[in-house]
Each structure stands twice: as C-alpha cells, then as structure tokens.
C-alpha cells in the first residue's frame, strides 16, 4: 500500500518515471539475498543487479573458508598455510582481516576472527545434526577447550606492504562469520553509489543496506520474529541511507534434547550465547553493525544497552521471553 502510494506520488508530483524492481540471489554467502532498486527500466535494473551479483560472488569466494577456487587466493588458502607461510591476498580480503583484528580490540575479544578452530567444532556438529537429527550431539568441554587453545588473535600477522597474511600457529584458523557479510554489504553500497543508484535496498541474509532519495525517502525494515525462516516481524525500523544488521539464534542452529544450539559462540563459555534471541543494530557502516550486533547479542541487555548508547546506535533486542526492547538513536 505504502509502496504503491509512493510510486503514484512520485509520478503524479514529479513526473519522473522510475519504478521499483526486485530480484533475489540464492547463491551468495550461503543465504537468501534480496535486492530492490528504483530504476527507469527493467534493463537498467538487470544490469545493476548482475553487476552487484558478480561483485558479491567475488567477495563470497574470497571470504570462503571451505572451498578452493581456481586462480583465487582466498581465506581458505590463508588457513591452509597456517604455520607454513604468508599468503598475499586481494585488497578486499586483506581489509576484511584487518577489520577483524581491529574488532577484537574494540569488543574486548568477544569478536575474534581467530576463533576458527572452535567454530569449526560447532560447525561439524551442526552439519552432522542437520544431516541426521538422530545423531545430534553437543561437543564436550574438553574438545572445545582444546580447540580454544588456538584462538590467539596475535597469531594473525599482517604485512601492509605486501598485503599478505600469515597465521603463525598452524592450528589456528580464521573464521570471518561475524564480519564478512557486513564488509560485503558496505562494498555493495559503494558499488551501487558508483553506478549512480540512489534508491535501493539490499538484504544480505540479515545484513541490510539501503540508499534513499526522493523516490524512496524511507525504507521500512521489519525486525524478524526470532524463528527460522519467519517473515513475520516484531518491530519496524525506518531506514535512511543506513545499515541494519540482525544477529539471532534462529539463523544457523541445530536442536539437541529440545534445546537450540546456534552459531554465535561466547568466548568465555565456548557455548552458544544465551542472553538474547536476537539483536539488531542500525548504523552507518554495515561492517560495524555486523560486529556490534554479534557483540551485543552475546552480552546481556544491561551491558549491551550501555554500549549501544555510547556508540549512538539504534538497537532492538528480542529477549528469551520474546520481549522487544528498542533504544532510540541518539544520532551519531
């Protein structure tokens, strides 16, 4: 209704013939991605959408820790060469890892891209449980703490001059899960701005960026009801040239004995964090939003809300009783 009204509004009052087009990608960042934009023709939209898709595919391959791609020196290559030799990488991958290292300091170590070994344990248990639910299990504390011995962020050695990355401990690996989509979403914004797109919305499976102009002064974003695959929402955000990122316990998880085991791991317990069902952060940078939504998801509300206030983020918490709490942005 609102959208139709806006389309008519634009045409009646400005006489400008832009219409909204949309598409979706099912093959980037292992998630369901939607893209919508205001363009003057389907052809114009298709061109932009294809360009955006190949940019996202490129970043997806660079940040992949499970697959090799011919001719690409990606994150898996860095991990494979841990304890062996430095790997020279593309600027985007280098920047991502650098941002990850910075995030460690900023979040008191809660966001640690060097936690690959621990996350891998959980990843394997999750894959196993999803493939055959009767085999579902929870890793033992011994197994997890053994893996946690190899999560020192200091093992990641960066060389700005050669843009190379070296992991000095051969059992340590990088998992960029908490930052990769945020970084990619920021690149997507740059891509769209360079293409002259002024009204667009990209939802990279929980990482949203939007561009606004007169044809779409505000994008309305629903904060998902914390259930897998749900398209119901519990809170509405109005976004204007901002990013919104949600971290939730419903995004990647498996069930064991009626309990949810999801993918956001608290470094202190090495278990899935259980203070919230989801946290959504509105910020300028999607990378920052990605980092802080995960960070605040792990922390209890009482601590997280202070940080959100300090940083001037608009944030929405859904707690374990499905109670929704939103703070009002202080402006930043």
């Amino acid at each position: 209704m609102k959208r139709i009204m806006l389309i008519i509004f634009i045409i009646l009052l400005t006489g400008c013939g832009k219409a909204e087009y949309n598409t979706q990608y099912l093959d980037v960042f292992d998630t369901y991605t939607t893209f919508q934009a205001y363009c003057s023709s389907q052809q114009e939209f298709d061109e932009i959408s294809q360009g955006l898709h190949s940019e996202m595919t490129r970043l997806n391959k660079l940040f992949d820790i499970y697959n090799d791609y011919e001719g690409i020196s990606n994150l898996k290559a860095i991990n494979d060469n841990a304890g062996k030799k430095p790997v020279s990488v593309d600027k985007d991958l280098y920047e991502l890892i650098k941002a990850g290292v910075n995030a460690y300091d900023e979040t008191d170590g809660y966001i640690n891209i060097a936690m690959g070994s621990v996350l891998k344990v959980w990843h394997n248990y999750r894959e196993e449980a999803l493939a055959s639910p009767e085999k579902a299990a929870v890793p033992s504390y011994d197994e997890l703490s053994e893996a946690a011995r190899h999560t020192d962020i200091g093992s990641i050695i960066l060389d700005d001059d050669t843009m190379s990355v070296y992991i000095s401990d051969k059992y340590t690996s990088i998992d960029p899960g908490a930052i990769a989509k945020g970084y990619a979403a920021d690149r997507a914004r740059e891509y769209l701005e360079n293409k002259g797109v002024t009204a667009a919305l990209l939802n990279l499976g929980g990482n949203v960026i939007c561009l606004n102009d007169d044809s779409k002064p505000l994008w309305k974003i629903g904060v998902q009801k914390p259930e897998e695959g749900s398209s119901e929402y519990v809170y509405k955000l109005d976004l204007n040239n901002k990013s919104a990122v949600s971290s939730g316990n419903y995004q990647r998880y498996y069930m064991y004995n009626g309990k949810v085991y999801h993918h956001i791991i608290d470094k202190n317990t090495l278990m899935p964090a259980d203070n919230n069902k989801s946290v959504t952060i509105v910020s300028n940078s999607s990378l920052e939003g990605d980092i802080y939504s995960t960070y605040l998801f792990i922390l209890p509300y009482s601590e997280g809300s202070k940080i959100a206030e300090e940083k001037g983020f608009e944030a929405v918490w859904v707690d374990n009783e499905d109670k929704v709490t939103a703070n009002v942005a202080q402006g930043k």
């Binding site: 959208r3 099912l26 998630t31 919305l201 990482n207 974003i221 629903g222 990122v245």
Partner: peptide, 21 residues
C-alpha cells in the same frame, strides 16, 4: 518461505515492509 537447496522461493504478493531481517 525459502528453500535454498532447491532454489525455491514461495512468497505472497505485496508488502507492508520492504524487507525483514
């Protein structure tokens, strides 16, 4: 409702928010 492995999307037309995250 989305099925990534089968590349299927089921959706009901029209919307009152632009996206849900």
């Amino acid at each position: 409702a989305v099925c990534l492995p089968n590349r299927l999307v089921l959706r009901i037309r029209g919307n009152d928010v632009d996206t849900v995250l």
